[in-house]
């Protein structure tokens, strides 16, 4: 069996190189933001991991849908791999956001729309993973897990709309360099975010790919077991 956790994987090397550049940009190159001080640099971790968790949700719901349509096991493997990595990224998003909010907002948590939505989605995908853990392996587990993946995707806009009605305070999500005109950073911030996001995206893809391969060989083991027990049976006969 070829090694699954391949440290010479080009994706990992690319990610590590970009991560080095990103670290230099974050801690040395980019000037300190005038309103928040050094803590603002948390943003350069928070936004990329938030993006990663969003990517995770997209891939889980997309491949869950494809699984229900095609019943091909590779979609199920992709769904479980990106759910697991997505939950890790999501957890990091929540933690880094909370640690940033403490000095800047003076609270660890508020009931703001994007925060609430992120937390509820995190719980839905944790439930997705737990469901897989509790259910005996087989086609039925894959089918039911895919249903949860799809339901989570359907629920997302409803949760966001509800949370939005409920309250608002999160700084606007930065989509481009000019999104935050009042800040003293502008385009510098955009460049750092871009590099950092790219680095974390490659890391995300690498982790999903690794998890996917492990999932694949788990299936192989089950297959081998079935084959060996079958041959043992014929041996007895």
């Amino acid at each position: 069996m070829n090694k699954i956790l391949d440290l010479l994987d080009p994706l990992l090397i690319l990610s590590a190189a970009l991560m080095g550049v990103a670290l230099y940009l974050i801690f040395i190159w980019v000037p300190t933001e005038t309103n928040q001080g050094a803590v603002q640099r948390i943003l350069y971790f928070h936004v990329p991991v938030a993006w990663g968790s969003m990517l995770g949700i997209f891939v889980v719901s997309g491949s869950s849908f494809m699984y229900l349509l095609k019943k091909n096991e590779k979609w199920d493997r992709l769904a479980v791999a990106s759910a697991e990595v997505g939950v890790i990224f999501g957890g990091l998003m929540l933690l880094s956001g909370m640690i940033w909010a403490r000095p800047v907002w003076a609270v660890w948590w508020t009931g703001e729309a994007k925060l609430t939505t992120a937390l509820i989605l995190f719980f839905i995908y944790v439930a997705y993973l737990m469901f897989r853990g509790y259910f005996p392996p087989g086609a039925q587990r894959q089918r039911l897990a895919a249903i949860i993946g799809v339901i989570g995707a359907i629920d997302t806009p409803i949760i966001y709309f509800a949370a939005n009605l409920w309250s608002q305070a999160h700084p606007p999500i930065i989509t481009g360099p000019a999104a935050d005109a009042e800040s003293a950073l502008g385009s510098d911030l955009g460049i750092v975010l871009l590099v950092s996001t790219l680095a974390f995206t490659f890391l995300f893809v690498f982790m999903v790919q690794t998890r996917y391969k492990i999932r694949k060989s788990e299936d192989d083991v089950i297959e081998l077991k079935r084959a060996s027990s079958a041959s043992a049976m014929t041996g007895v006969n």
């Binding site: 050094a38 803590v39 971790f45 991991v49 990091l92 933690l95 640690i99």
Partner: peptide, 9 residues
């Protein structure tokens, strides 16, 4: 706080 985020990540 910055350190904490970094360490946790």
């Amino acid at each position: 706080y910055l350190f904490a985020v970094f360490a946790v990540t």
